[in-house]
Design a protein around this nucleic acid. Sequence first.
DNA 1: AAGTATCTCAACCGCTAGATG
DNA 2: TCATCTAGCGGTTGAGATACT
Length: 281
Amino acid sequence: MGRSPCCEKAHTNKGAWTKEEDQRLIAYIKAHGEGCWRSLPKAAGLLRCGKSCRLRWMNYLRPDLKRGNFTDEDDELIIKLHALLGNKWSLIARQLPGRTDNEIKNYWNTHIKRKLLSRGIDPQTHRPVSAGSSAAAASGLTTTASTAGFPSLAPSPAPASRLHNPVHTAPPSNVSFARTATSAPSEDGHSSSGGSTDAPRCPDLNLDLDLDLSMSLPCSPPKTPAAASSTPTSHHQQQQTICLCYHLGVRNGEVCSCKTASPAGPRAFRFLRPLEEGQYI
DNA sequence: AAGTATCTCAACCGCTAGATG
DNA sequence: TCATCTAGCGGTTGAGATACT
């Protein structure tokens, strides 16, 4: 498209940030706030790409970041969220205040994957790995048994990045992460956003997950009023709405306050359709 | 102590959605 | 409507740290 590069690469530093660069970036953002990342480097006197500045700030310098080890509770929450959302690291990160998507992504790849495999669970599908079939696990092949930790949270087979992103779009009906047996598989077999295993590993899987627009944050307003009022099907209107936090046990049984805290009204909180009797996903 | 293997995680790259003119 | 720009996302890489021989 003839698009110009995001920065003049010939005149930008790359690699690890120095303390001085960090200080410059922090000072600038403290003075001016987060804003136009493209123009920030020049304004702040940094020989860095705006993208790089943004990343450095978001992943490392932000004052509200929580450094240090993840707790077991964090682990379990991440696992559950991953089962629900796939590799939507930014969405997962928003449920863990002080953690970044990059940090969670790294933690997943270095710790949780191994932890799940040691439990005999395929980290991509969240289903038990059949005995001795680590290769199957790696390729996303699964058994049909329920997951060990959360049988109702079988993973959604990898919505293509942004194609089914509940934050960005309000589909005409459910944001169904499930795919039928006739759904097209992903173009490649390796891990991509949302997961690597678009093979029909769960042909009858129907998560029927209706994540509302505020999925991104417990109480964040919807992106647009139009989207917020996107017409739910009558089918939906009959569903009891349950906050995702509540469903996941985040609030430990409490009714999530995000329902009331949202300025956008009752449509602004996330809900899952409870499974009907005999239904499994 | 030295060399090698493995692990961790900060940073980069390429891509897309949404905004704008 | 189209072209372009920007912010943001997810996958990947590689330097440094650590463990092992």
